[in-house]
Design a protein around this nucleic acid. Sequence first.
DNA 1: CGAGGGTTTGAAGTGCATCAAATAGTGTGG
DNA 2: CCACACTATTTGATGCACTTCAAACCCTCG
Lengths: 251, 251
Amino acid sequence: MDITVPLHKESDRSQKEDRVSLLKSVWLLHDLPESTTQHFADKSVAKRHEKGRLLFMQGEEAEWFYLIVRGRVKLFHETIEGTEAVIDVRSDGDIFGELCIFDQQRYSHSAEIIETTEYLMIPISLLQYYMDKHKQIAMNMLMKMSRQQQVQSREIEHLNVQNAPQRIGCFLLRLCPDDNLSAPVQLNLPYDKTLIAARLGMKPETFSRALLKLRQDIGIEVSGSIIHIPSTASLTEYTCNHCSQSIKCKE
Amino acid sequence: MDITVPLHKESDRSQKEDRVSLLKSVWLLHDLPESTTQHFADKSVAKRHEKGRLLFMQGEEAEWFYLIVRGRVKLFHETIEGTEAVIDVRSDGDIFGELCIFDQQRYSHSAEIIETTEYLMIPISLLQYYMDKHKQIAMNMLMKMSRQQQVQSREIEHLNVQNAPQRIGCFLLRLCPDDNLSAPVQLNLPYDKTLIAARLGMKPETFSRALLKLRQDIGIEVSGSIIHIPSTASLTEYTCNHCSQSIKCKE
DNA sequence: CGAGGGTTTGAAGTGCATCAAATAGTGTGG
DNA sequence: CCACACTATTTGATGCACTTCAAACCCTCG
């Protein structure tokens, strides 16, 4: 199943061009010279794998970091007894594994593909090389990490002050498009309910029951992975009132 | 009560020298030229305040960041309804408020003194000026923030997988000196039990009862703020077994 | 069609929060 | 140095939220 995407002669150039433009759009490489992005594209390796593939494990020595072209990857910790804590789920255009450069070149978490995913593997060494060279990379990382820190501290707060239905409500609101605050919204859960539950720090059973409560309390409709929210305003009121992020929990 | 520490002529020079050496020891200014540290010392303002003093509030426009010379400061969010979530408690040698430079120059949390504290106020503008000039500052921040990120994600995990007595146990273990893993340890709680409870995401009552449970289960002894741990090894086993941080939760 | 994973439902238990009240501890002014 | 006021901490009783264990259901896919 290990498919290194083949570069046929005819498509070689265009594929490489795609890769460059994709890399240019990633926050990490924002505002870098064309030649640098080009270099990243040249040294990166494209792959594709199915659900279940483990990309790396916590503690493992790190040689690559990853960019998702299309698909989804779960980042998680696991305890000795097998319970796992889901840190985040990443998707198209996201990178992960890059933080190991600050942690003795070891991954601080594990990463597993949860749906068929095309991705690029990029050498850590290249990142280190250019981090010395262009201050911009360090700046990009700082911006991202400080935002990330806000998000994490919001998550800690939510675990403390919100109950299960509220956490789900907040999760749904973050999936909604920002425009049109009062209109009804129809949306698709991006992945397994079980996984969402884990991501929100609750059991699948609790998730199911909490969703039921949201149906009763504010009239959302659920059919499989499709959710219909009659009024985001009332959901916001239900969910966000106990939260210190006075405005919105949007990232 | 607003005491700007006076610089008498005789002590002026030596106070300023102290300030420079203190600033040099702070992670943010590590490995910077003497002249830069000197500049920070010159532009900073020393103050001292009692418990209860609010240094700044979430959302406020930020002009300074802070270095604690001696004392303790609580960083927290608060919701509309008045409940507060304690993000961290900082003490001697720690800085805080510096992250606002990545957040439109606004503080993302509030800060309140919880015991008489001497501190320096340092202009944000100076930090910005030197951040452009010395890449080292950005690097120092990156190192710190990546470690911080680990700590936060550990906290999220703990809220999910540990119960109250275990969270307290972990907190106590992080207070223990690293050496001499099997010897009994005597230690002092660094601040209010109520505040520790808030920091660990539980109510004071729960904290009290959880401490009682630790007394029964592993024989720690509690007398006021003094804790005696007969065996850190057994506390570690009690506390850390469900946790993914295979080694220790030390920062 | 049957297997297997994801999801829901039910019944029972556990842990923490809440409310209320007692107790210990600390700092104050007399 | 003592009595008072105020805060921190403990204790008890009760309720709710989430988990756990068990079983049914549902859906997809070979």
